[in-house]
Simulated scan of single mutants.
Amino acid sequence: MTTTVGLAAIIVAGGASRRMGRDKATHPYEGTTLVEHMVGILKPRCAPVFVVAAPGQALPPLDAEVLRDEVRGVGPLLATGRGLRAAAEAGRELAFVSAVDMPLLRVDLIDQLVGPAVALNADVVLPWDGRDHYLAGIYRTSLADRVDALVRAGQRSMRALVDTVDTQRIVMPEQRSLTNVNTAADLAAIRSLQIA
């Protein structure tokens, strides 16, 4: 059932990347950049694919539609709302929302989340392995208005959205797919995992 469910993808790519010390989206990864790598992972499963970037953020040419945040540095909630609205306008009811820094993501993880999203008609479905992964979940695109209202009220965190809608958490063991790259050391550790 899940592989036939139409699904957009939203890659949140405009973060400040303070711990990395440089823009994560354009950080080199396996002969390309992290953002190109993420588009390559998601493109075979999701259509359309949106990359939400900061105003003026340089990006390589992408096989995805690039959207721009209106303002820089206000957190992922605003970017998620922008992506959800674009996905809704493209005719999608569901979108996989992802951080740009998950180079080990696998499509089978996405399909594990889509099934419950459809069966339970939930607003949000997140993987839970001891913590919430807000930027690795399935979101209803109809939440765009709710996000806008939260942002107008001064909210910036994904938790503000997730805690106010029907959110289902899928309990699973730790997944390599959910690994985020926050520092250069994290990236080096991932590369060594892939070699091993």
Rank of each mutant, 00 (worst) to 15 (best):
T26N: 13
H27C: 12
H27D: 06
Y29M: 03
E30V: 01
E30H: 15
G31I: 01
T33H: 04
T33C: 07
L34T: 02
G40P: 00
G40I: 02
L42G: 01
K43F: 03
K43P: 00
K43R: 15
R45T: 11
C46S: 05
C46R: 04
F50T: 00
A53H: 06
P55D: 07
P55R: 02
P55H: 06
G56D: 11
G56L: 03
Q57T: 11
A58S: 09
L59V: 09
P60A: 09
P61L: 04
P61G: 00
P61M: 02
D63L: 04
D63A: 13
A64F: 06
L67S: 07
R68P: 04
V71M: 05
R72F: 07
G73P: 08
G73Y: 05
L77H: 07
L77D: 06
A79F: 10
A79E: 10
G81Q: 09
R82F: 09
R82L: 15
L84N: 10
L84V: 14
R85T: 09
A86W: 15
A87V: 07
A90D: 05
G91S: 10
E93R: 14
L94R: 05
A99H: 14
V100S: 13
P103S: 09
L104T: 11
D111C: 03
L113Y: 00
L113M: 01
V114Q: 02
V114H: 04
V114C: 07
A117W: 12
V118R: 11
V118T: 14
A119R: 14
A119G: 11
A119M: 14
L120A: 12
L120P: 03
D123C: 13
V124F: 02
P127M: 04
W128K: 13
D129F: 02
D129A: 12
Y134M: 09
G137C: 13
G137W: 12
I138S: 00
R140G: 09
R140L: 06
R140N: 10
L143W: 01
D145G: 12
A149N: 10
A149P: 03
L150E: 04
R152W: 08
A153S: 07
G154K: 06
Q155C: 15
S157E: 14
M158W: 01
A160N: 07
L161V: 12
